[in-house]
Amino acid sequence: MAAPTTDYAYFPGCSLESTGIAYDKSLRAVFRALGLGLHEIDDWNCCGATAYMSVKETVSFAISARNLALAERQGPRDIVAPCSACFLVLAKTRRFLQERPALREKVDEALAAAELSCECRARIRHPLEVLVNDVGIAQLRAAAKRSLRGHRFACYYGCQMVRPERYFEPDREFPMAMDDLFRALGAATVDYPLKVRCCGGMQMVTNEPVGLDLTQGLLDCAVSLGATAIVTTCPMCQFNLELYQDKITARAGRDLHLPVLFFTQPLGLALGCDPAALGFEHQVVPVPGDSLTLAEAGS
């Protein structure tokens, strides 16, 4: 067996610099606590997201490939992309470039205009999968300094990480990685049937009634099941689920306020990271202060 990988290239993505900044902070803290290297790709650009993909195909693959090319220059490391949309776009770019020689030729030519080239060898990976597979849940539990006992999470995986690239197969309908992780760390997780149902994505902007319908369903279900928080793996899901709770509460006629966290935040708490380093100050729906103070693991 190859030696375990402990160094990764890091593609934060635009959201992690603004609306999802708590994800960036907590992810860095978690990797640091575990002694894993996270090397930000120098001068990375936007992955292109779905918006670019729906307008100009070749251009969207070319700009996405610039990131793969820059990462390669820094060394042969797997690329960690925490935003599910970036993860999908980068993974899709890599696969399409491998499977479609005609597209590859075009993208190579475009990259050559900037004196770049890309072998597309590096794998694109989501940090949840990296932590669960490369480190392992048993190791994570062993590394935990605090217990998440008392927390009751609705683990929400969303769409883009789970489905399109068959990344979590065979669990595309009901993945358990995050549930298993948090249960091992002392938390309870609710049996959340909507864990891979769509949050609405950009429909929240272009077609708000539909976006609100979808997030209302997700919040309603999590609240009904008695979750203390929804835990997400994607900045877009986190945003949609957290920022519209006033509006949703008003249209639902019942209180649907619930903290919405990035999975790296409670994980960081369990690993003994300073709560101040995990970005809780960015929560719009605050997490009760006392829930940030955890008992020692094993106590």
Partner: peptide, 9 residues
């Protein structure tokens, strides 16, 4: 890169 890709496609 964008300008070249746009020309191509």
């Amino acid at each position: 890169i964008i300008a070249r890709a746009e020309q191509i496609e």
